[in-house]
Every structure is written in structure tokens, then in C-alpha cells.
């Protein structure tokens, strides 16, 4: 028996929005530790890794580890039927072929449930090595989304350069060039508005705009985003999910030809 209840059901809706454009289908792995998902986009350029710890759920029961393969377009349809203020409960049997979603309104006067057929996915799991990154930048997530959107107008890829002074996003295209520099903030009233840079050595890497823009669909999850960069390894873009989880996107760099 698997049962997970999240009072703040809007978190699950936001998680769905954060992955549905990138992935067509994905396996949700459930264990006593919580819910995890790892999947590559269709072109195998990026990888999504989602972790929601059991401690973040109001109720969490998972008697046996199980994997639930879901079509994300179908899941999206179901989660769109939940209001932002609804509590969401997921339920499945031990060897399930369906999963049930129950949405309860705040006053409990409206209860709806939907069941969805699961699919068998033969997804390969990738081992993500522990990496000490040369630069780790934390910045407001809305700012990152705006920069990616603004610069995408000018070219297909963005170069991210990081020094101890700050981070620079650059684009070059047919009509010209664009640069956005963010300095490390000295002191800000709100932690959510800070830009911080932890740098071992400077880095400059180039990434496809298209994927960066997909990742920014996670912006509603968290006010801050963390970018981890090292030469010649994938970029990690991380958004926290409340206090109990995260969504990490790994993006392979573009290489010089």
C-alpha cells in the first residue's frame, strides 16, 4: 500500500508544470524515504532529478518500494482538476496498474477523485557522480527566468561566465549581442533577493537557451535558484521544493566545433 497526502497540493501542481514540457512520460519511484523521479528529455540533452522527502507529507506510507510509470500529459490533465488550495492524496496498491488522486477542498466540502492508468516504462537510471563545482551561484529565480527569456530573443545559446565578482550571461546572434551581469550582492534585506557566488575557479560555459527556458518553468517553486558550474560537465539548475525536496536539472554543455 502506498499513500501520500500533501496539504499544500499546489506544490505538486507546480512540480508538474516544471517537468511536463521537458518530459512526455516518467517513472515515479516511491519508497519509505519519499518520492523520486529521474528522467532524460527526449533528445538526451538534459536530465531531470526530482526528490520529495517523506517528511514533507502530512501522511506518508509506503509498505513496498514501487515504481509508477506515468504519462505526464495525462497526469497534467488530472492535476489541473485540483484547486491550488486543495490537499492532494496519492494512493496505489503494492503492485499497481492504476494510481488514485484525491483532491480535498480546505473546508472538506468538496472531494474529488481521479484514477489514472499507469504505464510500463523501461527507463534507464543514470549514475550522477558527486562533483565539486568550480562555481555555485544562488540568485533570485525570477531574475534567472527573465534573463533566459530576454537573451533567447537574440540567439540559440547563452554563455554563462562566473568569477568571484559575479555572474554574466551573454548571447550573440544575427542582430547583435546581449549581456547581463549580476554582481554579488553585499547586503540585502531579503535573503530571496540575494546573489551569492562561491567560486573555486572562474568558469565559462555555453548552453542551449531552449532547455534553460524549460527549466525556468520551475520558478514558482522557489524564490531562489542555484546554478552549479564546472568546466566540461553538465550545468545543474536547482530549485527547492518547500523544505523537503528539490528539482534539479542537468544540462550538457555545448561544445566548440
Amino acid at each position: 500500500m502506498f499513500e501520500a497526502r500533501l496539504t499544500q497540493g499546489s506544490l505538486l501542481k507546480k512540480v508538474m508544470e516544471a517537468i511536463r514540457e521537458l518530459l512526455n512520460e516518467a517513472s515515479f519511484d516511491c519508497s519509505e524515504n519519499g518520492i523520486q523521479l529521474q528522467a532524460m528529455d527526449n533528445s538526451h540533452v538534459s536530465l531531470v532529478s526530482l526528490n520529495m522527502g517523506s517528511e514533507g507529507f502530512d501522511k506518508f506510507r509506503c509498505d513496498r518500494n514501487l515504481t509508477m510509470g506515468m504519462n505526464l500529459a495525462s497526469l497534467s490533465k488530472i492535476l489541473k482538476c485540483a484547486s491550488n488550495s486543495d490537499a492532494i492524496t496519492l494512493k496505489a496498491q503494492d503492485d499497481p496498474d492504476t494510481v488514485t488522486f484525491t483532491f480535498e477542498s480546505e473546508n472538506n466540502e468538496r472531494v474529488s477523485d481521479y484514477s489514472m492508468k499507469l504505464i510500463n516504462l523501461d527507463q534507464e537510471h543514470l549514475g550522477i557522480p558527486d562533483t565539486e563545482y568550480s562555481c555555485v551561484v544562488k540568485m533570485p529565480s525570477a531574475d534567472f527566468a527573465r534573463i533566459c527569456k530576454d537573451l533567447s530573443q537574440f540567439g540559440d545559446c547563452i554563455t554563462i561566465s562566473c568569477t568571484k565578482e559575479g555572474i554574466k550571461f551573454s548571447v550573440a546572434g544575427d542582430i547583435g549581442t546581449g549581456n547581463v551581469k549580476l554582481a554579488q550582492t553585499a547586503n540585502v534585506d531579503k535573503e530571496s533577493e540575494a546573489v551569492t557566488v562561491e567560486m573555486q575557479e572562474p568558469v565559462s560555459l555555453t548552453f542551449a537557451c531552449r532547455y534553460l527556458n524549460h527549466f525556468t518553468k520551475a520558478t514558482p517553486l522557489s524564490e531562489q535558484v542555484q546554478l552549479s558550474l564546472s568546466a566540461d560537465v553538465p550545468l545543474v539548475v536547482e530549485y527547492k521544493i518547500g523544505e523537503f525536496g528539490h528539482i534539479r536539472y542537468y544540462l550538457a554543455p555545448k561544445i566548440d566545433e
Binding site: M40, H44, V45, L126, A252, P253, K254, I255
Partner: peptide, 14 residues
């Protein structure tokens, strides 16, 4: 996409 590397180049199958 021109010059785009695959994520599989960096992460091995577990």
C-alpha cells in the same frame, strides 16, 4: 542542435 553534447556522455547508466 549544432555542437550540443548528450547528457549520456557525462553520466553512465547506473
Amino acid at each position: 542542435i549544432k555542437g550540443q553534447s548528450s547528457i549520456l556522455k557525462f553520466f553512465a547508466t547506473a
